[in-house]
Design a protein around this nucleic acid. Structure first.
Length: 684
DNA sequence: GTTCTAGAAC
DNA sequence: GTTCTAGAAC
């Protein structure tokens, strides 16, 4: 990490532009966070403020809220800040990352991921530490904290992440930040050991399960070299499922080769369309593939994806041959896209020729059966017969032909530089491609749900999931009968009087059959096709507001009956029951029906989306970000008031029955909680 | 021995 | 979503 190469110096006329940054330090006690800050601040010409939770209360330890307040005032003054607290979990970091929106600043992470032993020995030896973590107890605390460690990812909102595993790494990071003047900025991305260009590769490495920690990322080459084939061996043994069982679409850049589409414009369209679809492909992933190392389109897309914070495990770029991804690159993609010609015929060179070649006559026959031609902007899915070498050797089960716009005057239907039409068609092409892929993913999910009961043979099971494509994506088939109850009530509330407390034109209000708290009702939308948050777009704002208002009205009614209740309104990010429903739930969680971790975490983790935040995000961004929600279900059990952790549900329940701590600051903001005024004072 | 979780079945 | 239950954790 050569410092001089790294820093981006501003242009002459920007010299005065101060660009404050927020650097969130991440590390256990004893990892050297405070020393890091001191060392940077000692040499830096940039104004820094160290926000240290251990000392913020007049030299004594303080609260996260105090840290946030100091962070805000410092940023307002144009000062850069270090957030000097452990910040080991996503949740602990989240509020500081939000400073990004409020102050338009870059958020960096510096991870002091030093050996636990070292942290412990430093903590144990420490006598005058500001956090007062001394003696033998330190070992237990450090171990406990490290167990909960969640390494940061760009999609949390970081613009730059630096991992340090050794003291040398730490010194390099000190040098980098120490040399940063007020107006310098550092490149975005993830920076691991020695090399700087690991941001996308990290995604790949994780995908391939090659690394747990970034320490092993030492090459800045994309994984296509023969030296990186370890994964393949494991793959060969495990049959035709993609690694992790994760459906993956590999696709070439459409129209930028033979059709001569402008790469700059094309890269924008790719990244924008990916951004839109990455939430609609379930657990699937998208990989842009190009055969050449110096590919311009790949590097453009790579950097734009980083800027847009697209989850690098859901989308990344890959250098390799589309027809040899598994055998030649160790990357198993069960679906590949073909940049087809309008006749859907082999030949013509490029990707099209290569794919038809590699797939053998089976693909041509299967294609013919399905379609005779293709219009620009359209895509068609061809299930690949298992006799095709692409299937047997590469594990490809579907080829999606897609046709993009043509800007090459020597090819049919040239658009003569009409980029208005061209961009529109290219966008359609990618949308159609990703939609086809999403449909395959849905089908696979469905068949893996139902296959177990009627099929014993392991291999046949796997093939079944991949081969049988059901083009229809009728959503109600995705839900079991038990999951349709709310939908039925919403459509015919008069037939289900049990539990229904109010029927309006747009919503039905229902007492939850298995309430998880003293008061727990559901406000169900009556709109058809609005199954869950994933279906919500800007056009649903009126119904979201109606649901919220009705929820608030009921909460107020309950508050009149019982002054001590506190209500929270929100949605489950991926609910078990069909039909969008708003939970209005009192925060006592005093209920015999609250029995397991999932119950608790579905109301007390980021899985629970506050109604106010849902409305805000949809009105600002037109849709919601929903990814990787299930991980919250297995989170440790923490008190919703004091955030203390508990080993199991019974212990948690006995704690929450007596905990009188105020609610966390975040919940007290923005009307996320509804309570009587008298209560409010106690809870602040 | 009892308590608790987690996965399958519905 | 719940119920049931094997077996892990205590």
């Amino acid at each position: 990490m050569e410092v001089d190469d790294e820093i981006i110096k501003p242009k002459e006329n920007e010299q005065d532009n101060r660009k404050p940054i927020v650097v969130i330090l991440i590390g256990a006690p004893g990892s050297g966070k405070s020393v890091f800050c001191d060392n940077v601040m000692r040499v830096s010409t940039r104004p820094w403020v160290r926000v240290c939770q251990d000392t913020i209360g007049n030299g004594k330890s303080g609260t996260k809220a105090q840290c946030l307040a100091l962070a805000s005032t410092s940023l307002k003054d144009g000062k850069s800040i270090f957030i000097d607290r452990c910040n080991l979990t996503i949740e602990q970091r989240a509020d500081f990352i939000k400073l990004k929106e409020s102050y338009q600043v870059d958020i960096h992470a510096v991870v002091l991921d030093l050996p636990a032993k070292l942290c412990i020995s430093r903590s144990v030896k420490r006598t005058g530490h500001e956090g007062n973590l001394q003696g033998g107890k330190a070992a237990a605390v450090v171990n406990q904290m490290l167990r909960k460690k969640e390494l940061p990812k760009l999609n949390e909102g970081f613009t730059r992440i630096t991992f340090c595993q050794t003291e040398n790494d730490v010194q390099e990071a000190v040098n980098t930040y120490g040399a940063l003047s007020s107006s310098d900025i550092l490149p975005f991305g993830v920076f691991g050991e020695k090399k700087t260009d690991t941001k996308v590769q990290l995604g790949i490495m994780k995908f391939l399960k090659r690394v747990d920690a970034p320490s092993k990322v030492t090459s800045d080459k994309t994984i296509s070299e023969p030296s990186n084939h370890h994964v393949d061996e494991r793959q060969e043994q495990s049959g035709t499922q993609p690694l992790d069982g994760v459906p993956t679409l590999a696709f070439p850049s459409i129209s930028t080769a033979d059709f001569q589409f402008d790469t700059e414009k094309a890269s924008d369209i790719i990244v924008e369309t990916v951004e839109e679809f990455v939430h609609k492909i379930g657990n699937g992933r998208l990989v842009l593939v190009d055969i050449s190392h110096g590919s311009k389109i790949l590097s453009l897309v790579k950097s734009k994806a980083v800027v847009k914070n697209i989850d690098p495990t859901k989308f990344f770029t890959f250098v390799g041959d589309l027809t040899k991804l598994r055998s030649g690159g160790g990357l198993h993609c069960n679906v590949i896209a073909n940049a087809a010609n309008w006749r859907l015929k082999p030949g013509g060179g490029g990707v099209n020729a290569a794919i038809f070649d590699a797939a053998g006559p089976d693909l041509e026959t299967a294609t013919k059966k399905r379609a005779g031609s293709l219009s620009p902007g359209k895509a068609v899915t061809i299930p690949l017969p298992s006799t095709s070498p692409l299937f047997s050797k590469q594990g490809v089960t579907h080829v999606i032909h897609v046709l993009g716009p043509n800007m090459n005057p020597k090819r049919p239907n040239c658009l003569n530089d009409d980029y208005t039409t061209g961009c529109k068609i290219l966008r359609e092409a990618y949308s159609s491609l990703f939609e086809n892929f999403a449909s395959i993913v849905r089908t696979q999910e469905k068949s893996s749900d139902c296959e177990a009961s009627n099929c014993d043979d392991e291999k046949t099971k796997k093939l079944k999931g991949f081969i049988e494509v059901n083009e229809s994506n009728n959503s109600n088939k995705d839900w079991g009968t038990w999951a349709q109850v709310l939908y039925k009530i919403a459509m015919h509330p008069e037939k289900h009087r049990n539990g229904v407390v109010e029927i309006l034109d747009d919503v039905v209000v229902l007492n939850d059959v298995y309430p998880k708290a003293q008061r727990h009702i559901l406000v169900i939308a009556r709109a058809e096709g609005l199954d869950r948050l994933a279906d919500v777009s800007r056009k649903h704002l009126p119904i979201l507001r109606t649901m919220h208002d009705v929820g608030v009205k009921w909460a107020r009614t309950f508050l009149k009956e019982n002054q001590s209740l506190v209500f929270r309104l929100g949605y489950h990010s991926s609910p078990s029951m069909r039909q969008l429903h708003l939970h209005v739930i009192s925060q006592d969680f005093d209920s015999k029906h609250l029995r397991n971790k999932k119950h608790w975490n579905s109301f007390n983790s980021p899985f629970f989306r506050d109604s106010v935040d849902v409305i805000q995000q949809v009105s600002e961004e037109g849709r919601l970000t929903l990814n990787d929600d299930q991980k919250f279900m297995s989170m440790e059990l923490r008190c919703n008031r004091c955030r203390s952790a508990h080993p199991n549900i019974p212990r948690l329940k006995s704690h929450i029955a007596i905990c009188k701590s105020p609610f966390p600051a975040k919940l007290l903001q923005n009307d996320r909680l509804l309570q009587n005024a008298a209560n409010k004072d106690d809870n602040v």
